[in-house]
Protein backbone atom coordinates (compact mmCIF):
# COMPACT_ATOMS: atom_id res chain seq x y z
CA UNK A 1 0.00 0.00 0.00
CA UNK A 2 1.35 3.41 -1.00
CA UNK A 3 1.76 6.59 0.99
CA UNK A 4 -1.40 8.03 -0.57
CA UNK A 5 -3.48 6.34 2.12
CA UNK A 6 -1.86 8.25 4.94
CA UNK A 7 -3.30 11.24 6.76
CA UNK A 8 -1.24 14.06 8.18
CA UNK A 9 -2.57 16.83 10.39
CA UNK A 10 0.07 19.44 11.16
CA UNK A 11 -0.21 22.30 13.66
CA UNK A 12 -3.91 22.76 13.05
CA UNK A 13 -5.50 25.58 15.01
CA UNK A 14 -9.12 26.54 14.56
CA UNK A 15 -11.20 29.37 15.99
CA UNK A 16 -14.97 29.65 16.12
CA UNK A 17 -16.34 33.17 15.99
CA UNK A 18 -19.46 33.64 18.07
CA UNK A 19 -22.29 35.86 16.82
CA UNK A 20 -21.07 38.49 19.31
CA UNK A 21 -17.70 38.46 17.58
CA UNK A 22 -15.74 36.65 20.30
CA UNK A 23 -13.08 34.29 19.03
CA UNK A 24 -13.03 30.92 20.71
CA UNK A 25 -10.13 28.56 20.20
CA UNK A 26 -11.62 25.15 19.36
CA UNK A 27 -8.51 23.32 18.21
CA UNK A 28 -5.04 24.32 19.29
CA UNK A 29 -1.93 23.00 17.54
CA UNK A 30 -3.37 19.62 16.69
CA UNK A 31 -0.92 17.10 15.22
CA UNK A 32 -1.78 13.63 14.02
CA UNK A 33 -0.23 11.18 11.62
CA UNK A 34 -2.13 8.12 10.50
CA UNK A 35 -0.17 5.51 8.61
CA UNK A 36 -1.66 3.73 5.58
CA UNK A 37 -4.00 0.95 6.64
CA UNK A 38 -3.89 2.02 10.26
CA UNK A 39 -6.91 2.25 12.55
CA UNK A 40 -6.74 5.21 14.90
CA UNK A 41 -9.25 6.00 17.62
CA UNK A 42 -9.70 9.51 18.94
CA UNK A 43 -11.37 9.79 22.35
CA UNK A 44 -12.35 12.91 24.15
CA UNK A 45 -15.14 14.51 26.15
CA UNK A 46 -17.95 16.19 24.26
CA UNK A 47 -17.02 19.67 23.13
CA UNK A 48 -13.31 18.92 22.71
CA UNK A 49 -13.46 19.59 18.98
CA UNK A 50 -13.30 15.97 17.77
CA UNK A 51 -16.08 16.48 15.26
CA UNK A 52 -14.65 19.84 14.20
CA UNK A 53 -11.38 18.10 13.40
CA UNK A 54 -13.22 15.59 11.21
CA UNK A 55 -15.01 18.43 9.40
CA UNK A 56 -11.64 19.99 8.63
CA UNK A 57 -10.25 16.68 7.36
CA UNK A 58 -13.38 16.30 5.20
CA UNK A 59 -12.79 19.73 3.71
CA UNK A 60 -16.21 21.04 4.78
CA UNK A 61 -14.47 23.91 6.58
CA UNK A 62 -11.22 25.40 5.29
CA UNK A 63 -10.96 28.34 7.68
CA UNK A 64 -8.10 27.17 9.90
CA UNK A 65 -4.36 27.48 10.41
CA UNK A 66 -1.99 24.59 9.75
CA UNK A 67 -1.93 21.85 7.15
CA UNK A 68 -3.95 18.71 6.48
CA UNK A 69 -2.63 16.24 3.92
CA UNK A 70 -4.06 13.08 2.46
CA UNK A 71 -1.00 11.33 1.06
CA UNK A 72 0.94 14.39 -0.01
CA UNK A 73 -2.10 16.29 -1.30
CA UNK A 74 -3.36 19.17 0.84
CA UNK A 75 -7.10 19.06 1.59
CA UNK A 76 -8.96 21.97 0.04
CA UNK A 77 -12.50 20.67 -0.42
CA UNK A 78 -14.63 17.55 0.11
CA UNK A 79 -13.65 14.62 -2.07
CA UNK A 80 -14.39 10.96 -2.61
CA UNK A 81 -10.90 10.07 -1.34
CA UNK A 82 -12.29 10.58 2.18
CA UNK A 83 -15.39 8.68 3.24
CA UNK A 84 -17.45 9.59 6.28
CA UNK A 85 -19.96 7.83 8.52
CA UNK A 86 -21.85 10.16 10.85
CA UNK A 87 -23.56 9.37 14.12
CA UNK A 88 -26.93 9.76 12.45
CA UNK A 89 -27.10 7.45 9.44
CA UNK A 90 -27.98 10.34 7.12
CA UNK A 91 -29.46 8.04 4.51
CA UNK A 92 -31.79 9.54 1.94
CA UNK A 93 -35.23 8.28 2.97
CA UNK A 94 -36.54 8.30 -0.62
CA UNK A 95 -33.78 6.06 -1.92
CA UNK A 96 -33.62 2.30 -1.51
CA UNK A 97 -30.57 0.68 0.08
CA UNK A 98 -29.14 0.11 -3.39
CA UNK A 99 -29.75 3.70 -4.49
CA UNK A 100 -28.31 5.11 -1.29
CA UNK A 101 -25.10 3.14 -1.68
CA UNK A 102 -24.92 3.96 -5.41
CA UNK A 103 -25.21 7.64 -4.52
CA UNK A 104 -21.79 7.30 -2.89
CA UNK A 105 -20.22 6.59 -6.27
CA UNK A 106 -19.10 9.23 -8.68
CA UNK A 107 -21.28 9.68 -11.77
CA UNK A 108 -18.56 8.35 -14.03
CA UNK A 109 -17.67 5.24 -12.03
CA UNK A 110 -17.39 2.06 -14.08
CA UNK A 111 -19.14 -1.21 -13.12
CA UNK A 112 -21.56 0.69 -10.88
CA UNK A 113 -23.94 -2.19 -10.33
CA UNK A 114 -21.27 -4.72 -9.39
CA UNK A 115 -19.40 -2.32 -7.13
CA UNK A 116 -22.58 -1.35 -5.28
CA UNK A 117 -23.58 -5.00 -4.89
CA UNK A 118 -20.12 -5.85 -3.57
CA UNK A 119 -20.34 -3.27 -0.79
CA UNK A 120 -23.92 -4.09 0.12
CA UNK A 121 -22.76 -7.67 0.39
CA UNK A 122 -19.75 -6.60 2.47
CA UNK A 123 -22.00 -5.09 5.13
CA UNK A 124 -24.29 -8.15 4.96
CA UNK A 125 -27.42 -6.55 3.52
CA UNK A 126 -27.75 -8.37 0.18
CA UNK A 127 -31.33 -9.34 0.96
CA UNK A 128 -32.32 -5.74 1.63
CA UNK A 129 -31.21 -4.00 -1.57
CA UNK A 130 -34.68 -2.74 -2.34
CA UNK A 131 -35.72 -1.79 1.17
CA UNK A 132 -36.20 1.82 2.19
CA UNK A 133 -34.30 3.14 5.23
CA UNK A 134 -37.45 3.35 7.40
CA UNK A 135 -37.89 -0.39 6.99
CA UNK A 136 -34.47 -1.13 8.51
CA UNK A 137 -33.25 -1.33 12.10
CA UNK A 138 -30.80 1.22 13.47
CA UNK A 139 -27.83 -1.13 13.07
CA UNK A 140 -28.79 -1.96 9.50
CA UNK A 141 -29.08 1.71 8.59
CA UNK A 142 -25.61 2.32 9.93
CA UNK A 143 -24.35 -0.61 7.83
CA UNK A 144 -25.81 1.05 4.74
CA UNK A 145 -24.06 4.29 5.73
CA UNK A 146 -20.77 2.40 5.98
CA UNK A 147 -21.33 0.80 2.58
CA UNK A 148 -22.09 4.22 1.07
CA UNK A 149 -18.90 5.66 2.55
CA UNK A 150 -16.78 2.77 1.27
CA UNK A 151 -18.29 2.29 -2.18
CA UNK A 152 -16.06 4.90 -3.82
CA UNK A 153 -13.04 3.09 -2.29
CA UNK A 154 -11.79 6.09 -0.33
CA UNK A 155 -8.22 6.30 0.88
CA UNK A 156 -9.42 7.13 4.37
CA UNK A 157 -12.65 6.33 6.17
CA UNK A 158 -13.65 8.77 8.91
CA UNK A 159 -16.20 7.71 11.50
CA UNK A 160 -17.83 10.32 13.72
CA UNK A 161 -19.27 8.45 16.72
CA UNK A 162 -20.87 6.05 14.27
CA UNK A 163 -22.40 3.70 16.83
CA UNK A 164 -23.25 6.29 19.47
CA UNK A 165 -26.97 6.09 18.82
CA UNK A 166 -27.16 2.27 18.85
CA UNK A 167 -28.04 0.04 21.78
CA UNK A 168 -25.18 -1.69 23.61
CA UNK A 169 -25.66 -5.09 21.94
CA UNK A 170 -25.87 -3.77 18.42
CA UNK A 171 -22.90 -1.52 19.12
CA UNK A 172 -20.62 -4.44 20.01
CA UNK A 173 -21.77 -6.32 16.91
CA UNK A 174 -21.10 -3.32 14.74
CA UNK A 175 -17.61 -2.94 16.20
CA UNK A 176 -16.85 -6.54 15.26
CA UNK A 177 -18.25 -5.95 11.80
CA UNK A 178 -16.18 -2.83 11.35
CA UNK A 179 -12.97 -4.68 12.25
CA UNK A 180 -13.88 -7.42 9.77
CA UNK A 181 -14.49 -4.84 7.01
CA UNK A 182 -11.27 -3.02 7.90
CA UNK A 183 -9.15 -6.16 7.65
CA UNK A 184 -10.92 -7.16 4.44
CA UNK A 185 -10.63 -3.78 2.69
CA UNK A 186 -7.44 -2.44 4.22
CA UNK A 187 -8.85 1.09 4.34
CA UNK A 188 -7.16 3.57 6.66
CA UNK A 189 -9.70 4.38 9.36
CA UNK A 190 -10.07 7.14 11.93
CA UNK A 191 -12.86 6.87 14.46
CA UNK A 192 -13.96 9.59 16.83
CA UNK A 193 -15.77 8.35 19.90
CA UNK A 194 -16.43 9.11 23.55
CA UNK A 195 -16.62 5.43 24.41
CA UNK A 196 -13.24 4.35 25.84
CA UNK A 197 -14.06 0.66 25.47
CA UNK A 198 -14.88 1.15 21.80
CA UNK A 199 -11.70 3.16 21.22
CA UNK A 200 -9.49 0.44 22.73
CA UNK A 201 -11.34 -2.36 20.96
CA UNK A 202 -11.00 -0.80 17.52
CA UNK A 203 -7.81 1.23 17.40
CA UNK A 204 -4.19 0.38 16.74
CA UNK A 205 -3.65 3.57 18.66
CA UNK A 206 -5.90 5.63 20.90
CA UNK A 207 -5.31 9.37 20.82
CA UNK A 208 -6.62 11.28 23.81
CA UNK A 209 -8.07 14.72 23.26
CA UNK A 210 -8.58 17.33 25.92
CA UNK A 211 -10.99 20.15 25.95
CA UNK A 212 -10.77 23.93 25.63
CA UNK A 213 -8.81 24.30 23.58
CA UNK A 214 -8.99 20.89 21.96
CA UNK A 215 -5.64 19.26 21.47
CA UNK A 216 -4.04 15.82 21.60
CA UNK A 217 -2.76 15.19 25.08
CA UNK A 218 -1.52 11.67 24.98
CA UNK A 219 -1.50 8.58 22.87
CA UNK A 220 -1.78 4.89 23.75
CA UNK A 221 -0.59 2.13 21.46
CA UNK A 222 -2.90 -0.87 21.68
CA UNK A 223 -0.68 -3.84 20.91
CA UNK A 224 -3.29 -6.53 21.26
CA UNK A 225 -4.00 -9.20 18.68
CA UNK A 226 -7.37 -9.21 17.01
CA UNK A 227 -10.02 -10.33 17.63
CA UNK A 228 -9.74 -8.57 20.94
CA UNK A 229 -11.40 -9.64 24.12
CA UNK A 230 -13.19 -6.83 25.94
CA UNK A 231 -12.59 -8.67 29.22
CA UNK A 232 -8.92 -9.65 28.96
CA UNK A 233 -6.42 -8.29 31.49
CA UNK A 234 -4.36 -6.42 28.91
CA UNK A 235 -7.48 -4.87 27.43
CA UNK A 236 -8.74 -3.76 30.82
CA UNK A 237 -5.36 -2.37 31.76
CA UNK A 238 -5.26 -0.03 28.78
CA UNK A 239 -8.87 0.86 29.33
CA UNK A 240 -8.19 1.68 32.95
CA UNK A 241 -5.17 3.79 32.08
CA UNK A 242 -7.22 5.87 29.64
CA UNK A 243 -10.06 6.13 32.09
CA UNK A 244 -7.63 7.46 34.65
CA UNK A 245 -6.40 9.97 32.11
CA UNK A 246 -9.83 11.57 32.10
CA UNK A 247 -11.17 11.00 35.57
CA UNK A 248 -8.10 10.58 37.77
CA UNK A 249 -7.65 7.82 40.37
CA UNK A 250 -10.90 6.24 41.42
CA UNK A 251 -11.19 5.65 45.12
CA UNK A 252 -12.20 2.13 46.02
CA UNK A 253 -13.50 2.43 49.58
CA UNK A 254 -14.43 -1.25 50.05
CA UNK A 255 -10.75 -2.21 49.69
CA UNK A 256 -10.21 -0.82 53.15
CA UNK A 257 -13.21 -2.36 54.83
CA UNK A 258 -11.91 -5.89 54.80
Amino acid sequence: MGRENSLTVQHVTKYHTSPQGDRLCVLSDVNLTVEPGEFVSIVGPSGCGKSTLLRLILGLDTDYEGRILVGDQPVTRPGLDRGIVFQEHRLFPWMTVFENVAFGLSEHAAHRRDTVRHYINLVGLSDFENAYPHQLSGGMRQRVAIARALVSQPQILLLDEPFGALDAFTRVQMQQELIRIWSQEGTTMVIVTHDIDEAVYLGDRVAIMSKRPGTFRKEYAVRLVRPRDHGSDDFLQIRRAIHREFFGEVEVPFAYTI
Binding site: F128, Q135, F169, T170, Q173
Partner: peptide, 13 residues
Amino acid sequence: MAQEDRVELAPVR
Protein backbone atom coordinates in the same frame (compact mmCIF):
# COMPACT_ATOMS: atom_id res chain seq x y z
CA MET B 1 -23.84 -10.76 9.54
CA ALA B 2 -25.35 -10.44 12.95
CA GLN B 3 -28.39 -12.46 13.81
CA GLU B 4 -30.28 -9.58 15.36
CA ASP B 5 -30.42 -7.70 12.12
CA ARG B 6 -32.00 -10.54 10.22
CA VAL B 7 -35.43 -9.31 11.03
CA GLU B 8 -38.27 -9.49 8.58
CA LEU B 9 -38.99 -6.37 6.59
CA ALA B 10 -41.71 -5.13 8.85
CA PRO B 11 -42.75 -1.51 9.26
CA VAL B 12 -41.08 -0.10 12.33
CA ARG B 13 -44.01 1.89 13.59
